[in-house]
Simulated scan of single mutants.
Amino acid sequence: MTTFDRVKKLADKQKISIVELEEKLEFGRNSLYSWKKKIPNGASLAKVADYFGVSTDYLLGREVPRESNTEDDLTAFFRINTEGMTEEEIDNLKEELEDFMLIRAERLKRKKAKKDD
């Protein structure tokens, strides 16, 4: 898996396209696509890592992501008792929690951006 593949996977998880990510990070058009064949520079790599909350080592394939147990962490974080729920119900709940956390994170980013202006 290339660095680009890892970035694409993270972007897909947040339901944004590579083009949108490039715009948000103020990268040139197709700059992330070039990561399919070459290793990115440190500054760009760090910017992407910070955006997704992962390490540069993860993006380079040197470590397992911190979020590898995100689903379990979410149910623990919200202290949800899933006893008596079907696997499908648990999966749906986890998906809803992930969506909620992404929405809140975006809202906080916008709030911070307004405060910085």
Rank of each mutant, 00 (worst) to 15 (best):
M1A: 11
D5M: 03
D5P: 02
R6P: 05
V7D: 03
K8H: 06
K9S: 09
K9M: 07
K9Y: 03
L10H: 01
L10Q: 05
L10W: 02
A11P: 02
A11K: 02
A11C: 04
D12C: 07
D12L: 06
K13T: 04
Q14T: 03
I16W: 00
I16P: 03
S17A: 05
S17F: 00
I18P: 00
I18T: 01
L21N: 02
L21Q: 03
L21C: 02
E23S: 05
E23L: 00
K24A: 06
K24V: 03
L25D: 00
L25E: 02
R29L: 07
R29Y: 04
N30C: 07
L32G: 04
L32R: 05
Y33G: 06
Y33K: 09
S34E: 10
I39Y: 00
P40M: 04
N41K: 09
G42Q: 12
G42M: 08
S44C: 10
S44Y: 00
L45R: 03
L45W: 02
L45G: 02
V48S: 04
V48H: 03
V48K: 04
V48Y: 01
V48R: 03
A49V: 01
A49P: 01
D50A: 08
Y51N: 01
Y51M: 03
F52W: 04
G53F: 05
V54T: 01
V54W: 01
V54L: 00
S55V: 02
T56V: 01
T56L: 00
T56R: 02
D57K: 11
Y58N: 05
Y58T: 03
Y58L: 04
L59F: 01
L60A: 08
L60T: 05
L60S: 09
R62A: 09
E63Q: 12
E63I: 04
V64T: 10
V64K: 12
P65A: 10
P65S: 14
R66K: 11
S68G: 14
S68D: 15
T70G: 11
E71S: 13
D72Y: 06
D72N: 15
D72W: 05
D73N: 12
D73K: 13
L74M: 11
T75L: 13
T75F: 06
A76S: 15
A76K: 15
F78G: 11
R79K: 13
I80P: 12
I80C: 14
T82Q: 12
T82A: 15
E83P: 12
G84H: 07
M85C: 12
T86H: 09
T86A: 13
E87L: 15
E87A: 13
E87G: 13
E89A: 13
E89R: 15
E89I: 06
D91W: 05
D91V: 09
D91Y: 07
K94V: 09
K94I: 11
E95R: 15
E96Y: 09
E96I: 10
E96P: 12
L97K: 09
D99E: 11
D99L: 13
D99C: 14
F100P: 14
F100W: 07
F100T: 14
F100Y: 11
L102V: 10
I103G: 10
R104E: 14
R104C: 12
R104N: 13
A105T: 08
A105W: 05
E106R: 11
L108T: 07
L108V: 10
K109E: 12
R110I: 08
R110A: 12
K111D: 13
K112L: 12
K112W: 06
A113G: 10
A113Y: 06
K115D: 13
D117A: 14
D117F: 07
